[in-house]
Nucleic acid binder design. Structure first.
Lengths: 157, 157
DNA sequence: CCGCTATTTGGAATAGTTCCAATTCTCACT
DNA sequence: AGTGAGAATTGGAACTATTCCAAATAGCGG
């Protein structure tokens, strides 16, 4: 607690500190790279870009850093659910709710008017063939005696 | 074109025919399995279930059949983009548009009121920690003066 | 019944990611 | 400044989901 705190030159250090984590060159550069070119790069692409500055960094570290940044809410992982693809024969418009607790995926009916509204946010020159809406969170545990596999169970891994 | 058409005992055969594909036991059973237990199974899970009926089926076939069903619009693949996870430092609420042509992912700003509306479709006992909205389709090629690399490029694989 | 093509099959190959054990780094404390 | 403890990084091996491929099979049209 000694010290002239650096007047927040960067948000990253701050956020990391908030989570009790250290600011490291690797984390900084990974974050910089993401900020500098906002093209939703993959971990591999980030790896390549970061290596330009930190030639000895390892891919594992890039994954670690990305994970850390996601934890700190500085970065969003776009392909959230990295598990296997799931298949669903429900043809009505619906969203999916992914229950973190059980690993189950539930269909949530989607009022057509809402679907339209969602589609309406697209600029005119974007032609969407499909939309996918996915929630993640916790569904109230069906308390008590329920063994009812209402809509889906996957062994939570 | 001979024939007493079987009076559509099942939609599957129909749909397949429409796409110029054959109805096979494997496809039937895979589809049945999906209809019978609507728990968003993975390909592996489907594989296991189908084997109960067709013990000699291979995993590759299950993948093939699932793919076929998706093509025929009888089934939806929930994990749409099976590629690598992408990372995005945009913290404002936004959806993603995945351009099939270029492979690029663009951020689409999401009016907060719409976000609320979307959240509102959840039954009360569902507690969503996050929502992800993903469009897929084609974005008009930004011809002419637009250099706006608004958000991203990935080499289309 | 024959041939042709669609489909299935098993196994090998790939891709993305995670895991792990060993090393290095940093900070706090003397 | 020196040291010990915990964090973070590293490289490589391991894993998992999926795709690819070439050979075998099956089913329809003639």
């Amino acid at each position: 607690m000694s010290t002239a705190l650096p007047t927040a030159p960067d948000a990253l250090a701050q956020r990391l500190a908030d989570s009790g984590l250290r600011s490291t060159p690797q984390r900084e550069v990974v974050y910089d790279v993401l900020l500098k070119k906002r093209d939703h790069p993959t971990a591999d692409e980030v790896f390549v870009r970061v290596k330009a500055e930190l030639p000895t960094i390892s891919l594992a570290t890039v994954y670690n850093c990305l994970e850390t940044l996601v934890q700190c809410d500085l970065v969003r992982a776009v392909n959230f659910e990295r598990g296997p693809t799931r298949y669903c024969p429900n043809l009505r418009p619906h969203a999916h709710f992914h229950d973190e607790r059980s690993g189950a995926t539930h269909d949530i009916d989607l009022p057509p008017e809402l679907l339209e509204r969602v589609n309406a946010i697209l600029p005119p020159d974007y032609d969407a063939k499909s939309v996918e809406i996915i929630f993640r969170g916790k569904a109230a545990a069906p308390r008590s005696s329920e063994h009812r596999v209402a809509s889906s169970e996957h062994s939570a891994r």
